[in-house]
Design a protein around this nucleic acid. Sequence first.
DNA 1: TAACACGGTTCGGTGAATGAACTAACATGG
DNA 2: CCATGTTAGTTCATTCACCGAACCGTGTTA
Lengths: 176, 176
Amino acid sequence: MAGMALGKNYDGQSCALASALEVIGERWTLLIVRDALYGVRRFGDFQAHLDIPKAVLSQRLSTLVEAGVLERRRYQETPPRDEYVVTPVGQELWLPVLALAQWGERHLSTRGPHRLFHHVTCGGRLEPTSYCRTCGGLVTLDEVEMRPGPGLAGDTRQDQVSLALRTPHRMLDPIP
Amino acid sequence: MAGMALGKNYDGQSCALASALEVIGERWTLLIVRDALYGVRRFGDFQAHLDIPKAVLSQRLSTLVEAGVLERRRYQETPPRDEYVVTPVGQELWLPVLALAQWGERHLSTRGPHRLFHHVTCGGRLEPTSYCRTCGGLVTLDEVEMRPGPGLAGDTRQDQVSLALRTPHRMLDPIP
DNA sequence: TAACACGGTTCGGTGAATGAACTAACATGG
DNA sequence: CCATGTTAGTTCATTCACCGAACCGTGTTA
């Protein structure tokens, strides 16, 4: 993605997804996060693995450090060398990364899954799910209702969609 | 994101995440999908709600239709009007969208959540989780091991990271 | 018959991505 | 002591995507 660093962002969307995309929605960023979750830490390793222009990598790493996703850490003094380590905030991106990757595996992959993720304690395969805190069941989209929350307070948009979404709404129900 | 439509893509990444990002990783695309999951269907509604340039919206909708995420459907003949409806493949993007939005709520939101997602049958709040198929437990990143799968067969990369990731690897363990 | 609505396409200007070249700090080998 | 190499960048010219405004075609309404 482009134009998000200075001024041209998703402002006015009143949506946490838009905020998230301002941090991790630019080109290359989520692949950098994925590599960092694998354990890649050094500038040169990111660059060699991703085939990304150095200037872009440098800028993305700075953005991620600023957003609290990565932490820049001096690991030796002579010569001075820094590494980029995933913070707890960055570790929580594991779920969206896994969910997106598995969507790609299911619908865009040809020769079967590229990488499998297993639970170390029992060896079972991982699955990302959306589950219900109250009844504990797995929930599919047709059982989901959106309700406006307190963060929507400052939303002044007047288009039909924004108006409709300020009241509870069943997912996939046509708007308006 | 930029440069993904013609030739300049994430090729050589041997990764389902990269494939997924080629479809839904461009600027605005995931916000369009989110709106479509809410039930937005018409060109003008997307445009009014997102404040997106028409040319970009037009191109993104075409890409999403081509990828099988949306279906373009004639809903009236005079005047001829089409709508864009989420396919089952697109509905499966619900989980990554929810996971990303909740990450944004937790770490980037100021006034509390913008939108809450509830289970219609019991009213409980939704939570995206990564869970283990075998033991049924919820799994955090430090309990995850990556193992190479059959789709990795054609991978000929020789950098240190690619070599290390062709063998089972505990997440967050430093590479190389 | 004129104005309007919808769903786009076309166009010029701006800014980001790209690859190649260059820099700086230090290490290593002869 | 000097040449070469490694790491982590920065600088630069070119290319390309995003942007907003204007325009277009079809059909509808006043």
